[in-house]
Nucleic acid binder design. Structure first.
Length: 476
DNA sequence: TTTTGAGTTGTTCGA
DNA sequence: GTCGAACAACTCAAA
């Protein structure tokens, strides 16, 4: 009788789970384990900032437990240092091996290295369709520019072994193994935007892939409109592995192949590209772990950030006086999610307009986004800051007024998240300080009283950040 | 080794 | 209001 441990980390699913399959193939008894790691939970909890993520995770774990019980198994919850907890479990049960999905996040790698010194740890691919070492340049070094990476990625055959896509039957758990209860500080409200679980993830994927005005075929036209539900909103599910990258990418490729016309195919292609961006940033993190807390570009490591605490608080609270920025930050605070276009706008605003270190924004996103993934979040912030892998021209600075007018042309997004601006005429909605004072009084929205003045003048801030970047570049 | 083409997502200004 | 050019130079990838 051999016993194996399936160590679940960010792959909360039964279908298309290569680590689970490898574990099943190796053992007669299987112990599915999730270790509540204080290092992760603590670092994510500043105040109770991460309560929503924890609640989403715990909800997902409970549902995974229910799915396992329906198959005669169950989920074992442990708490503490993973090496100690797993070693203890292995000695109690006689488990001889641990199977887990590979994760290139620097903390995950050091954690796994520690576990591997104590136990036979098998790390199995699955976080991405193509593991970081599978997409390399001809000379064996990693890509650092997206487009060539995309070409190479697409030229690789898609590994789709048969049978993996269906949930497997799971061997039983030894009787004596104890599990801790899951108590979240706060539970997700019943009307939460995101309901956890593999079944919900599959349901949402099915809806996005179906033919309708807000589906994959219209993604290319709709994706930049935060006032519409034109994106898949699958990111929290990918983050916790309630869906596999392969399930999603196979879906996108099939829809691209089946597209009735060129425009539909373009929609599916555009969405696929976004998924390849995820793979790209995971590859970057695997090969350049130092970029987790440093600019990828060395010449931009010496920027003299302003780091004004009060300005940062205004940004966090959605009180900057720029409506599109405030709408987005309040959407994040209230739902744990933010539209992708809005992420770019608030990131550009924090870094370029407020001249605040991109790491501050990165941390805020990590704490509040349900989908916060170290690789994608870091890559996105470094891209916005212009410090990342794809050198964006230094002069690409978003104008929050123009971005608002362009991407929220009817003001629906701003009005739904910034209710004090609900009655501001569209003409002034993205620059309310330009409203005549008698109009402000008439509609009950006095700028400086009911809604803040801009924390910074965009034109002035633009010159300031250009100068700060120029100084760093000439110093480096 | 050298050369060549290209690089997610913009803004501003002046005609 | 619309349109095209300027905004710099640099690094990467591949031939």
């Amino acid at each position: 009788m051999t016993t194996a441990i399936w160590w679940i980390r960010r792959d909360l699913r039964l279908a298309d789970n290569q680590a689970l399959h490898a574990a099943i193939a190796a053992a007669d008894q299987l112990i599915p384990v999730f270790v509540l790691d204080p290092t992760i939970l603590k670092s994510e909890q500043v105040g109770d900032a991460a309560w929503r993520r924890v609640a989403f995770l715990f909800g997902g774990l409970r549902l995974l437990d229910a799915e396992l019980r329906a198959r005669g198994s169950r989920l074992v919850i442990l708490q503490g240092n993973p090496t100690e907890e797993l070693a203890k479990l292995a000695s109690e049960t006689g488990a001889t091996a641990v199977f887990a999905e590979e994760d290139p996040w620097p903390y995950a790698r050091s954690r796994d290295a520690a576990v591997a010194t104590a136990l036979r740890l098998h790390l199995v691919a699955g976080l991405t369709v193509h593991p970081p070492d599978a997409v390399l340049k001809a000379d064996g070094t990693p890509y650092t520019v997206f487009t060539p990476f995309l070409r190479a990625w697409k030229s690789r055959p898609l590994p789709v072994p048969g049978g993996l896509l269906e949930p497997p039957s799971v061997p039983p758990v030894p009787q004596q193994v104890a599990s801790l209860p899951l108590h979240a500080e706060r539970e997700l409200p019943p009307n939460a935007l995101f309901v956890p679980g593999e079944a919900e993830a599959q349901r949402r994927l099915g809806i996005f892939l179906a033919d309708h005005d807000l589906g994959i075929y219209h993604y290319a036209e709709n994706r930049d409109r935060p006032d519409m539900e034109g994106t898949s909103q699958l990111s929290p599910y990918l983050r916790f592995g309630m869906l596999s990258a392969r399930q999603v990418i196979v879906g996108a490729l099939r829809k691209a192949d089946d597209a009735p016309d060129e425009q539909d195919r373009h929609g599916a292609d555009t969405w696929l590209n976004e998924l390849v961006w995820r793979e790209f940033y995971i590859s970057i993190q695997a090969h350049f772990p130092e970029t987790a807390d440093h600019s990828f570009r060395r010449d931009l490591q010496a920027i003299a950030w302003e780091n004004d605490e009060a300005a940062f608080e205004a940004w966090c609270a959605g009180q900057t006086g720029y409506p599109i920025v405030d709408a987005a930050m309040r959407q994040l605070w209230q739902t744990g999610w933010m539209h992708n276009r809005a992420r770019m706008i608030v990131a550009s605003f924090l870094v370029k307009d407020l001249l605040i270190d991109w790491r501050w924004g990165e941390r805020w996103f990590m704490q509040h986004l349900l989908d916060a993934d170290p690789s994608s979040n870091n890559g996105g912030w470094q891209w916005s800051a212009g410090t990342g892998t794809d050198a964006t021209p230094y002069f690409r600075i978003f104008n929050p007024i123009l971005q608002g007018r362009k991407h929220d042309p009817e003001g629906v997004y701003v009005r739904s998240w910034v209710p004090e601006l609900a009655h501001v005429p569209l003409r002034y909605l993205h620059a309310p300080w330009e409203m005549p004072t008698d109009l402000q009084a008439a509609i009950g929205c006095r700028v400086g009283h009911d809604y803040p003045f801009p924390v910074v003048d965009h034109g002035w801030a633009r010159e300031r950040v250009l100068a700060a970047y120029a100084r760093s570049r000439s110093a480096g």
